[in-house]
Amino acid sequence: MKQNTLGYKIKQYLMFAGPGTVLFLAVVIVPFLYGLYLTLTSWDGVSAQKPFVGFANFAAAFADSDYWAAMGRTVIYSVFAVILINVVAFALAYLVTLGIKGQNFFRAGFFVPNLIGGIVLGYVWKFVFNRAFVAIFGGTSLLSTTNGAMFCLIFASVWQYAGYMMLIYVAGFMSVSAEVKEAALIDGCTPSQAMWNVTIPLMRSSFVQCIFLSITRCFVVYDVNLSLTKGEPFGSSVMAAMHVYNQAFTYKNYGLGQAEALILFIVCAIVGVTQVMVGKKGEVEA
């Protein structure tokens, strides 16, 4: 059979990749393009007409102070959460690669929060913050204060993702060969110097990856936000993703909501890509 005719190529492609391509185009590419169009309309989600309004939604999005407040909170939340997730995850990974008895058990244990979906663990933490911590430490629940609610969100996110990132750091620790570390020690490094000057630089790709994953996840946090704080108290813990959801589905401003979602995506993509480019630049190999 001839293998370079157009007919053969089309048949081969459709036979193997047809279903995947169709589904991918149907749920990712088509909605994405249609979403771009929606940002130019003032659709209310119900009526058949979608009045064309040009760039008015983007102007409204830039003027929407609630949106930018939510965006600001998301940035603060992400900065704290990303740093803490990675510090905790790195520390855990260090501890479970020392060769201590039962380290596999600990690894498995630290990963457990990741198995549970954001909705369920948000409710679990809500109970812990509202009841258990109040019973232990006294006072009122942290969730009822503005800063406290933010703190709780960050705390729960660190708890949720640290175990996952730990697995990536563990893989990073394993990839640094024992010989390189031994050579550094023989050359007169103290163990902590070997850690900072040999192991960590060689693990750079793990850091780049963990930070990228945690940034992209934190920026669009929704499930935990919904179940743990629901934006309360007084809308002081509404993150950008929740604001977008409410804008579109609760207030029925679909065009505006979509425009705000698009801005969120662009900000998130710029931060993520910059971080990866900066991170990759200084990568070293053993």
Partner: peptide, 17 residues
């Protein structure tokens, strides 16, 4: 390239279509 698109950007058009 599409892997960087978060679900939030697609949810409104998805429900609409």
């Amino acid at each position: 390239a599409s892997m960087v698109i978060p679900f939030q950007v697609l949810m409104v058009p998805l429900v609409s279509v």
